[in-house]
Amino acid sequence: MIVITTPTGDIGSQLLQRLAASTEELRVVVRDPARLATDVRDRVEVVQGSHGDAEVVDRAFAGADAVFWLVPPDPAAASVDAAYTGFTRPAAGAFTRHGVRRVVGVSALGRGTPIAGRAGLVTATLAMDDLIAGTGVAYRSLANPGFMDNLLRQVDSIRDRGVFTDVVTADRRTPMVATRDIADAAARLLLDTTWSGVDTVPVLGPEDVSPQDMAGTMSEVLGTPIRYERESFDAQAARMSSYGVGAAFVQGMTDMMSAKEAGLDAGVARTPETASPTTFRQWCEQVLKPAVSG
Rank of each mutant, 00 (worst) to 15 (best):
V3G: 02
T6H: 04
G9P: 06
Q14L: 10
L15S: 06
Q17S: 11
R18P: 00
A20R: 02
A20G: 15
E25C: 06
R27H: 05
V28I: 10
V28Q: 02
V30Y: 04
D32C: 06
P33Y: 10
P33I: 06
A34S: 15
L36I: 08
A37C: 04
D39E: 14
V40I: 08
R43P: 00
E45W: 08
G49V: 03
G52Q: 03
A60Q: 04
D65Q: 15
L70T: 11
P72H: 05
A76G: 12
A83D: 09
Y84P: 00
T85N: 02
T88S: 15
T88K: 03
T88Q: 04
R89W: 09
A94Y: 05
F95P: 00
T96F: 09
H98V: 09
G99N: 05
G99H: 06
V103C: 02
G105H: 01
A108I: 09
R111V: 08
G112M: 04
A116S: 11
G120P: 01
T125K: 11
T125P: 00
L126N: 01
L131K: 01
G134N: 02
V137L: 02
A138E: 05
N144M: 15
P145C: 05
Q154S: 13
S157W: 06
S157A: 15
S157M: 10
I158D: 03
F164K: 00
R173V: 07
A178V: 08
I182F: 05
A187G: 04
L190E: 05
S196M: 06
G197S: 04
D199F: 13
V203Y: 05
G205N: 08
P206C: 12
D208Q: 14
G223Y: 11
P225F: 08
Y228G: 00
Y228M: 04
E231V: 12
E231M: 15
S232D: 00
S232A: 07
D234W: 07
R239D: 09
M240K: 10
Y243G: 08
A247D: 12
V250W: 05
V250N: 01
Q251H: 12
M253T: 14
M253C: 10
M256K: 08
S258H: 13
A262K: 09
G263Y: 11
L264N: 07
V268Q: 10
A269S: 13
R270G: 07
E273F: 14
C284T: 12
G294M: 09
